Amino acid sequence: MLTGKQKRYLRKKAHHLKPVFQIGKAGVNDNLIKQTLDALEARELIKLNVLQNCAEDKHFVAEAIAEGAKADIVQIIGSTIILYKESTENKRIELPN
């Protein structure tokens, strides 16, 4: 669970990032969760974009992916979701206390 201070720090770090995945009409599936897990292990902080043709609500999509990848939701703004998960082998981001 992230504190408010940590979320602010991660939002600042994620500002310049481009979305790694786009979620369309296929919605959330096992393959998307697996790829998200791999991306989080490599980068720790990623953005996802929910397209207009996605049948599911962006909050449901964020919860489903975060739960499947065991990641933390940093922010949902517009159609963009920011996720964070500490990497086991590739630690890059030092969170403030």
Results as ranks from 00 to 15, higher is better:
Ala71Asn: 05
Ala39Ser: 09
His59Gly: 10
Asn31His: 14
Val20Gly: 00
Asn90Arg: 14
Glu41Thr: 07
Ile93Leu: 12
Leu48Ser: 02
Met1Pro: 10
Leu51Ser: 07
Lys70His: 11
Ile76Arg: 09
Arg43Asn: 12
Asp72Arg: 06
Lys12Val: 09
Pro96Met: 11
Ile81Glu: 05
Val50Asp: 03
Gly24Pro: 04
Leu45Asp: 01
Arg8Asp: 15
Leu48Phe: 02
Gly27Met: 12
Leu48Ile: 02
Leu83Asn: 00
Asp30Asn: 15
Glu56Ser: 13
Ile93Cys: 11
Thr36Asn: 00
Tyr84Val: 06
Leu37Tyr: 10
Asn49Leu: 13
His15Val: 10
Asn29Ile: 05
Lys12Met: 09
Glu63Trp: 09
Arg11Glu: 15
Lys70Trp: 03
Ala55Leu: 10
Lys70Asn: 12
Ile82Pro: 02
Lys5Ile: 14
Asp38Gln: 13
Arg8Ala: 15
Ala55Cys: 04
Gln52Met: 09
Leu48Asn: 00
Tyr84His: 07
Asn53Ala: 04
Asn97Phe: 11
Asp30Leu: 13
Ala71Tyr: 04
Leu40His: 05
Thr88Lys: 15
Glu41Leu: 00
Leu95His: 11
Ala66Lys: 06
Asn90Cys: 12
Lys7His: 03
Leu51Gly: 01
Ser87Gly: 08
Ile23Ser: 06
Asp30Pro: 10
Cys54His: 08
Ile23Thr: 00
Val74Ser: 08
His15Tyr: 14
Glu89Tyr: 14
Asp72Thr: 04
Val28Pro: 07
Arg11Gln: 15
Thr36Gln: 03
Ile33Gly: 01
Phe21Tyr: 13
Tyr84Asn: 07
Ile33Pro: 00
Glu41Ser: 01
Thr88Ala: 11
Lys85Leu: 02
Ser79Cys: 09
Lys91Val: 14
Leu17Ser: 00
Gln22Val: 09
Arg11Trp: 05
Val20Phe: 09
Lys13Glu: 11
Pro96Asn: 10
Lys18Arg: 14
Ala66Thr: 04
Thr80Asp: 09
Glu56Tyr: 10
Gln35Thr: 07
Leu17Gln: 04
Ile77Cys: 14
Leu37Lys: 11
His16Asp: 14
Lys25Asp: 10
Tyr84Asp: 04
Arg92Ala: 15
Ile33Leu: 01
Phe60Thr: 09
Tyr84Leu: 06
Phe60Gln: 12
Leu95Ala: 11
Asn53Thr: 05
Ala39Asn: 02
